[in-house]
Amino acid sequence: MLPSGHLMWLGLAYLLYFGQLGVLIPYLAMFLDGRGLNSVEIGQLLALITLTRILGPNLWANLADRTGKCLRILQLGCLLATLSFVLIFIADTFWSLTLCFGLVLMFWTAIMPQMEVITLNSVAGDSHRYSQIRLWGSLGFILLTILAGRLIDWFGTEVLILICAAVLIGLLLVSLRLSEPQSLPDDTPHTGTIWRRIVTPVFLGFILAMCLLQVGFGPYNSFFTLYMKDLGYSGLQTGLLLSLGVVAEILIFLKAGRLIQRFGIKHILLFSLVLTLIRWLLLAYLAFYPGILILSQCIHAASFGLTHAAAIQFIHRFFGRRFQSRGQALYVSLAGGLGGALGNFAAGLLWQQGQGATEAFTAAALILAVATLVVALLPKEQLEARQPVG
């Protein structure tokens, strides 16, 4: 286990990493709208760049597992993402913006899987300590989301690329202060390949459910800020709403480890998916009520906080230390990459410059119903096991 000073640098890395997401995820559609793209083009661009999360994480994780240099891969990803981001300052067409953001995201995918592996090894797999470090990411998301919302009100959407460039540089500098944790004994047999684990029914069912969850997030991730703008909310008010969701996420992360230990991965996932389904229905039909918006943002504690904590624990237990980088990468690429791309693309088709908002969120709720059914059919003992079945 690393000294507390190194854990502090890990916390700061999470803060900056998720702070960057706090700018890009909520406001990228608004930035692209300011550059003149319509809702279909925005959905297509977001889908295309999200596809890089399918190839990227597996490429970097395979290199990390083969070399054992997780930290070096993380640092390289930070450097190349920062250098690639400079191109966005001069990009002004659909395809040039797609290429630039695609390059940034390709290198960006090298960061999180390695950071998760380093953190989990640093805390010896302790879910409670992991959640405490992960809280810094939520704080970063809140701070940058509110700051970006206020700066958009003052300076317009172009200010976003200045914020992102500054955060990327900060993350690169922090990554240089991180240390590789001491190697721990492998807890899995050295026979077999990762493919034997991937093709087990429990993993396929789990990854299908997580993929569907991300498909359901499509309208929210792509168009929530534009939705709030259409409803008459300012950039600051939208930032505060987004931050409320992350505050709820922080509060649940404080208890996530203990909740998973008490109720198990399956029950946590079922509870979270059902609440997320309700959340999308609230946004579809009752979003004009401020109280409903506040309630829906509080449900983010389950939609993201609990599902993420449970998913990370499942991956960590299921793949063991031998395949953990590639296991994390598979989760990121298939759930976040494929699921996110499909969700963004479908949301772009349904949104129709805001006229199809109700249909988009209703479709998201139906997708969550399918995800809930998939998890309900998975055997609880296999989801909780530290070794794969088969």
Rank of each mutant, 00 (worst) to 15 (best):
F318Y: 15
I278M: 15
Y227T: 11
R262Q: 15
Q297Y: 05
A256N: 03
S272F: 06
H267D: 13
L241I: 08
L281T: 08
L251P: 02
L270T: 04
L241D: 05
S303V: 05
I252Q: 00
V247C: 10
Y233P: 01
I315P: 01
I252A: 01
L269R: 07
L259T: 03
A311K: 01
F318L: 09
S272M: 10
R317G: 03
L295F: 14
F271N: 06
H267Y: 11
L226M: 07
A287T: 01
H308T: 06
F253T: 03
R322G: 06
S272L: 12
I252C: 10
V274Q: 04
V246W: 11
F323M: 02
A301Y: 03
L244F: 06
R317W: 04
H308N: 09
L270Y: 09
G320C: 11
S272V: 10
G235Q: 04
Q313L: 12
A301P: 02
L226H: 00
G305Y: 09
G232S: 08
F323D: 09
L254E: 01
F314L: 12
R258K: 15
T225K: 07
W280T: 10
M228C: 10
F314Y: 15
R258H: 13
L277K: 00
L269A: 09
R321K: 15
I299S: 04
G257C: 08
L254N: 04
G320Y: 09
H267S: 15
S303L: 05
F304W: 12
L293F: 11
L231D: 01
